[in-house]
């Protein structure tokens, strides 16, 4: 049975976390929290440790030093995975001709533990339909996932993460393959989920201009945490420090 955690614990917390791949350090002494209901965007250069922090956040890696807690529970002991929706940059099945329909792949997100009769389950659940309608792919539910475009495959992974109604969404560059229309739709969806369902969001993005507009909090990472605060507090200096070259911040607001 999962351990019940206090309702006041942050959705996610990194406490003096360090991680290295062999002898190569990836993340050093990072401390910050993602409070419940927040929309935190992580930005930083390639190889700066953003994706490593995401892997630590979903317990795919364990820190060499420090602690990662998910809803107040140590990530190594976390079991309530139905509370988490994770969207990676891609899935390994997308490099082979994986024989599954769009609806089938989205249904993988409904996993709730061992079920010996799962082989005999057929049909599309209402949750799968709703998730596909949410990302605008319901019209493609029968199609083979391998026949979709890169952007559509990304939408399938997003629907898969949404299908079980997660409390915390962790997204690693989810809009990389999406066109402008789908990107806007995607961010509207995230805001709607945050407002109406109180979903907490941790998102990695290279699109600094967009996330400064969308997120409630920004974490600038380049192995160490360079800046963590509200978007309006982000300065040219902080971004220059994190990217290692002079950055002039220009934000286009559409509202």
């Amino acid at each position: 049975m999962p351990v019940t955690t206090g309702e006041n614990d942050p959705a996610l917390s990194f406490d003096r976390v360090s991680f290295s791949y062999g002898l190569t350090p990836a993340v050093e002494d990072v401390t910050f929290s993602v409070e419940r209901g927040e929309f935190v965007a992580m930005v930083g250069p390639n190889g700066g440790g953003k994706s490593t922090l995401v892997k630590l956040a979903v317990a795919l890696e364990q820190p060499k030093k420090g602690r990662v807690k998910i809803f107040g529970q140590d990530s190594s002991r976390f079991e309530s995975w139905w509370r988490i929706g994770y969207v990676p940059q891609t899935a390994s099945a997308f490099s082979v001709r994986f024989p599954a329909s769009v609806a089938e792949v989205v249904s993988y997100g409904e996993y709730r533990g061992f079920n010996p009769l799962a082989f005999f389950h057929r049909g599309v659940s209402p949750g799968v339909r709703e998730a596909l309608e949410t990302v605008g792919l319901w019209g493609h539910w029968r199609r083979q996932v391998s026949d979709l475009s890169v952007g559509q495959k990304q939408l399938v992974l997003i629907a898969r993460a949404l299908v079980h109604g997660p409390d915390l969404l962790i997204l690693d560059e989810p809009t990389a393959g999406l066109d402008v229309t789908h990107q806007e739709r995607f961010y509207n969806l995230l805001q709607e989920m945050r407002r109406e369902k109180g979903v907490t969001i941790l998102l990695v993005s290279h699109d600094v201009g967009v996330v400064l507009h969308e997120a409630t909090s920004i974490a600038c990472i380049n192995q160490a945490l360079v800046f963590h605060g509200r978007p309006e507090e982000v300065t040219d200096e902080a971004l220059s420090q994190v990217y290692g070259f002079p950055v002039d911040l220009v934000i286009h607001r559409h509202d």
Binding site: V58, A59, I84, S92, A93, Y108
Partner: peptide
Amino acid sequence: FDPDLART
């Protein structure tokens, strides 16, 4: 399909 997604 994807070992990492399965773990999460």
